[in-house]
Simulated assay, not measured.
Amino acid sequence: MTAGEARRARILDELRAAEGPLSGALLAERCGVSRQVVVTDVALLRGRGERIVATNRGYVLADAPASRPVRLFKCHHSTEQTADELTCIVDAGGRVEDVFVNHRVYGKVCSPLGVGSRRDVARFVDELASGRSTPLMEVTGGYHFHHVSAASEDDLDAVGRALAARGYLAEATPYERATFS
């Protein structure tokens, strides 16, 4: 095994063992190489079929085992309510795995999030505020979807109740439930 192959195996091991995203800088430090080498290694791993996703906080494996139940929530609110919505979810025991919209022209447009704590919420909202981008939901008038995971179905029920109590929960159509769940 070459040094590059061993490093790429280590990157996969690190991603499999991680409970959340790992930054390129952290992977570079753990492997003793530059961040650019990690970027190249990730590209090579993707090229051989590994499902590595780059999030705003680092790399994750897209096909990590789903040991937690996951539920689809359709939401609607203003951009200013984004932090409250995400905080509502994590406080009820949920982890926001992704956000996506169903655009009438582009179809499903999705981004992984991996938001599981108030700290993650603050980081995400700060990145939105400091960037030139707007939340994905703005292209659909505030309507968007989240896959939310939790330790139990009871926690997912609590997430649904909390979103409904704040008026953020929107009714998904039968088509949306069948297509996006």
Rank of each mutant, 00 (worst) to 15 (best):
Arg104Gln: 13
Ser149Trp: 13
Thr87Leu: 15
Ala64Trp: 09
Val125Asp: 08
Val70Ser: 06
Phe73Asp: 03
Thr134Met: 13
Ala62Glu: 12
Leu156Val: 06
Thr2Gly: 15
Val90Met: 09
Asp154Val: 11
Leu169Cys: 02
Arg46Gly: 13
Ser67Ile: 11
Leu113Lys: 14
Val139Arg: 10
Glu176Met: 10
Thr2Glu: 14
Gly58Glu: 14
Arg51Asp: 15
Val148Ser: 04
His76Asp: 01
Asp155Thr: 00
Gly131Lys: 04
Glu19Cys: 04
His147Met: 05
Val38Phe: 07
Ile11Trp: 14
Asp41Asn: 07
Glu80Gln: 07
Pro69Phe: 12
Phe73His: 06
Leu136Gln: 05
Cys75Tyr: 03
Asp154Lys: 13
His76Lys: 15
Gly94Asn: 07
Asp126Ser: 14
Ala66Met: 12
Lys74Val: 02
Leu136Val: 05
Ala66Asn: 03
Ala9Phe: 07
Val33Phe: 09
Arg7Ile: 03
Ala170Ile: 01
Asp13Thr: 10
Ser67Thr: 10
Val101Met: 13
Val105Gln: 11
Asp41Leu: 02
Val99Trp: 10
Gly131Arg: 04
Glu138Ala: 03
His76Ile: 07
Asp63Val: 00
Thr82Gln: 12
Asp120Pro: 00
Val39Gly: 02
Tyr59Asn: 03
Glu80Thr: 01
Tyr59Asp: 03
Gly47Pro: 06
Gly142Thr: 07
Arg118Pro: 00
Ser130Met: 10
Asp84Thr: 08
His144Pro: 01
Asp13Ser: 15
Thr179Arg: 15
Arg104Asp: 12
Leu12Lys: 03
Pro65Cys: 01
Arg177Trp: 11
Gln81Asn: 08
Gly24Cys: 08
Ala178His: 11
Cys88Val: 08
Ile89Met: 15
Ala43Leu: 13
Gly4Ala: 14
Val38Met: 05
Val105Asp: 11
Arg166Tyr: 07
His103Lys: 08
Ser117Thr: 12
Arg71Ser: 13
His146Val: 04
Val37Ile: 09
Glu50Ser: 08
Arg8Pro: 00
Ala170Leu: 07
Ser149Lys: 11
Arg10Ser: 13
Thr40Pro: 00
Gly107Leu: 07
Ser34Pro: 00
Tyr175Ile: 02
His77Tyr: 13
Ala66Tyr: 04
Ala83Gly: 14
Gly114Ala: 07
Glu5Ala: 12
Phe145Gln: 08
Ser67Phe: 13
Cys88His: 05
Val148His: 06
Ser117Gln: 04
Gly4Cys: 02
Ala64Asn: 01
Arg7Lys: 10
Pro174Val: 00
Val33Pro: 03
Pro135Gln: 04
Ser149Val: 10
Leu163Ala: 05
Arg10Tyr: 11
Arg177Lys: 15
Leu163Trp: 06
Tyr175Phe: 15
Val125Phe: 14
Leu45Asn: 07
Val109Ser: 02
Arg68Val: 00
Ala122Lys: 14
Cys110Glu: 13
Arg16Val: 05
Val139Trp: 05
Gly131Pro: 02
Leu15His: 07
Glu127Cys: 08
Leu169Lys: 05
